[in-house]
Design a protein around this nucleic acid. Structure first.
Length: 600
DNA sequence: GCCGTTTTCGGCCCGACTGTTTTCAGTCG
């Protein structure tokens, strides 16, 4: 049975191929709209498409008679002749060219028709030979930019975004857990540590029958190919190229193995040297008495510091490993050898924020701009997640591409929100806001009189990414100096594995946020996770508060909050650092704090 | 290809930026 996502992918590919053929851009847009609709429409479109009478399907906005017929063909036969014919006209690898930043349909078409370039590899070769610069419409700079974009892609080729592998992690973990011979299962490695991107997945199981688990693992339906198949260790590749390693250990070995395979490498090295100082040897299987050093190596000062061999305490859990070394339990997200071991030794580790601490969230979109669900649908979804409040922040008028709201439409939305809030009573609240564009010179897309009518506002950069660092920093700081800008959205504009962050002096922005009382967003979109976790300790030290925001453009995307929480934890944040851990009864005062103090 | 009609064809989202041009096409948000 074909899925919604598969149909959407087919429609997207049709759109790309039609662009290559120079088709009517509005026809192309219709296919893209169709892809959106099939993914997000609340009715069961696949069921409607299976019917003989397609009238109900055609009644759906964005679907006309042509698309309805194609859906019907896909659902009933699993194929689409129109798509197959179209695809047959071009090599499969042509899609790679669309992934390269700076290349759109026109340039891809020229490259394909003039030079026969049909893959990223052949494009790279042509650029290196200087052939591309000679094409009409291309030049030296374009050629250089293409090479840079290809290099960026190559550098990230084996990397995957945490948020995008999460469903696969769940599937694999569930499959392993369901096996009767596994007593414990966990995903380890950088995924468990909450890294924003990972290059593979490491699973660990405790089992008395490792061989049986290995045979089971390599024969699962999610396996695209088997890389290694041993008796305690196997590696497979998933369809999207992601490598997954599985290690099987005995239940006794499991706690030490989990520490070892969670890493980081630097954290493990520090742990092992700490163990050695205490007379233990720590490896991937056990914590054991350290063997006395041989006379040859005894001359080093470190070896002479080793205390006599002693019997380690019993280890049942991962926490016991840390306890045996005189440490508090260190959460996986903190294991980067960035001071966590010292903090664990003197009992000063932070109590990290948890998803369950969140009472609400800000920065979400609706159909008013480029979101796919209505105000009410977004509110209902937030309530289902157990949240008490939801901040709406649709795009402002300068974001034309996102159907940004002008003052009139914004105030109309505010009125709608107030009306819905009357209906919700005390149990739930929508906060009316905006994602206000920061224009090139740092001025805001709305004047303060307009912003003052909102409950809060997020300021974000969506244009002129190529300003130099000094100008960009000045621009952002100017924007957040407005008393009506409650929080700063996606600080660096990065798109993980796709677009580098723009140049900006992050410590200077953090200082300005501290000085002005501006909250900084941790944008929890799987593409962004921006501001990066590496900066949050500094921000928190300076007294800057964080808001974990999913930047949801559809109800399902509210779930991305958990990614933001993982990143916040990796940045050592506690619930006191995160404003959306405040209950509804207290959040409003917090939103008003900045403008209230400015008016004093 | 969809929509909405002044019911059967015309309109469909705008502007900045870049690099190529020598007045603008292509890409991006």
């Amino acid at each position: 049975m074909i899925t919604r996502d598969q149909i959407a992918t087919i429609l997207e590919e049709i759109a790309l191929l039609l662009e290559l053929k120079g088709e009517n851009p509005f026809k192309i847009r219709a296919y893209r709209t169709g892809a959106e609709v099939v993914q997000t429409h609340s009715e069961d479109l696949l069921a409607l498409a299976g019917e003989e009478d397609l009238k109900p399907l055609e009644a759906v906005k964005g679907i006309g008679s042509a698309l309805a017929k194609k859906f019907h063909e896909l659902v009933t036969t699993g194929k689409l002749a129109f798509y197959d014919d179209l695809k047959a006209e071009f090599p499969e690898t042509i899609f790679e060219l669309f992934e390269i930043q700076g290349l759109g349909p026109k340039k891809v078409k020229a490259l394909y028709e003039e030079l026969g370039i049909d893959s990223a590899a052949s494009l790279k070769t042509a650029c290196e030979k200087g052939e591309v610069a000679g094409l009409s419409g291309f030049g030296q700079k374009t050629e250089k930019k293409i090479l840079e974009a290809i290099a960026f892609q190559e550098a990230n080729a084996d990397q995957f975004r945490m948020g995008h592998v999460a469903p696969q992690v769940e599937e694999i973990r569930d499959a392993l857990k369901a096996h009767p011979q596994t007593t414990r299962v966990e995903v380890a490695g950088s995924y468990r540590r909450g890294k924003e991107t990972v290059h593979d997945l490491d699973f660990l199981v405790a089992t008395p029958k490792p061989k049986e688990i290995m045979d089971f693992f390599v024969s699962q339906p999610f396996v695209e190919s088997v890389i290694n198949h041993g008796s305690t260790k196997s590696s497979i590749r998933l369809e999207d190229g992601l490598q997954c390693d599985l290690r099987a250990v005995s239940p006794e070995e499991y706690p030490c193995a989990l520490v070892y395979f969670t890493g980081s490498k630097e954290h493990n090295i520090a742990l092992r040297s700490l163990a050695l100082k205490q007379g233990y040897s720590l490896n991937e299987y056990s914590l054991s008495p350290a063997e006395p050093k041989s006379p040859k190596t005894k001359t080093t000062s470190q070896a002479s510091n080793v205390t006599p061999k002693k019997k380690p305490p019993a280890i049942h859990e991962e926490a016991d490993v840390y306890k045996a070394l005189g440490l508090d339990y260190i959460e996986p997200e903190l294991r980067e050898n960035a001071g966590e071991i010292e903090a664990a030794a003197n009992h000063s580790l932070p109590r990290l924020v948890e998803t369950g601490n969140l009472h609400g969230t800000f920065h979400n979109h609706t159909t008013a701009s480029d979101g796919q669900n209505s105000l009410r649908e977004m509110a209902d979804a937030a309530m289902e997640l157990g949240l008490e409040y939801l901040g709406i922040a649709d795009h402002s008028k300068s974001s034309f591409q996102a159907n940004g709201l002008d003052e009139k439409r914004l105030l109309k939305q505010v009125a709608e929100i107030r009306k819905l809030n009357d209906e919700f009573g005390k149990k739930f609240r929508i906060f009316a806001g905006t994602e206000c564009d920061i224009l090139k010179d740092g001025t805001l897309d709305f004047d303060e009189a307009t912003l003052a009518q909102l409950d809060y506002s997020v300021a974000s950069v969506h244009s002129s990414f190529t300003l130099g660092e000094a100008a960009m920093t000045k621009r952002i700081i100017k924007a957040i100096e407005s008393p009506y800008i409650t929080m700063l959205g996606h600080l660096t504009g990065r798109l993980l594995l796709k677009r580098e962050p723009y140049a900006v002096d992050i410590p200077a922005v953090i200082d300005a946020a501290a000085a002005t009382g501006t909250i900084i967003e941790l944008n929890a979109s799987p593409w962004r996770l921006d501001m990066d976790w590496r900066w949050w300790r500094l921000a928190a030290e300076k007294g800057v508060r964080c808001s974990i925001n999913p930047d949801a453009h559809r109800t399902a995307a509210l779930q991305f909050l958990y990614l933001g929480v993982k990143s916040a934890r990796k940045g050592w944040l506690t619930k006191n650092d995160v404003i959306n851990c405040l209950p509804l009864s207290k959040i409003e005062t917090e939103l008003q704090r900045k403008r209230a103090s400015a008016s004093k």
